[in-house]
Design a protein around this nucleic acid. Structure first.
Length: 146
DNA sequence: GCCAACGTTGGC
DNA sequence: GCCAACGTTGGC
């Protein structure tokens, strides 16, 4: 799950009340569909994008079932979408809980060096999705790099 | 700041 | 349903 650390980084999640925050603002159908497949207890990498050192910066846990994203209903919110309503929500979020920061940022360029990870959507050319699946095998491999 | 890649919009 | 125009993402 990607976020720009200048807006909301792994340190912000750690500081949040109960180390938990809603992952709101996703406005892409494919990313939304991945969110809707998430279940409490699932683990996720926190990926820092749009910064000097893009890469995996931490690990978090999905803290609740997917639910409608209330920021889509709020005309004053950044990602307001008048086509989404509480009666017929279009966008979803999950709450995420901080587990730990990685010992170091596992950078995008490092991830690209490993053929075992070449199939990850994150590493595919031109990819812009902000939420993507990781297989159990890829997960273990990445954690072992740390 | 640049630009490639991609998703979305809207006219037809 | 097609596709050009446009806006956004995100690495570099």
């Amino acid at each position: 799950m990607k976020s720009e650390p200048a807006a909301f980084g792994i340190a912000d999640l750690q500081r949040a009340p109960r180390h938990t925050a809603p992952w709101d603002g996703v406005r892409n159908y494919q990313a939304r569909n991945f969110i809707r497949e998430m279940r409490p207890g699932d683990l996720a990498f926190f990926y820092h994008s749009g910064c000097a050192q893009p890469g995996i910066a931490g690990i978090m846990e999905i803290a609740g079932a997917p639910r409608p994203d209330p920021t889509a209903f709020d005309p004053d919110a950044d990602h307001y979408d008048p086509r989404s309503s509480p009666e017929k929500p279009r966008w979803y979020l999950v709450d995420v809980r901080f587990k730990r920061a990685t010992a170091r940022v596992i950078t995008l360029s490092e991830l690209r060096e490993h053929r075992a990870l070449a199939q990850m959507p994150l590493l595919r050319r031109g990819n812009r999705l902000s939420v993507m699946p990781v297989t159990a095998e890829q997960w273990r491999y990445i954690v072992s790099l740390e």
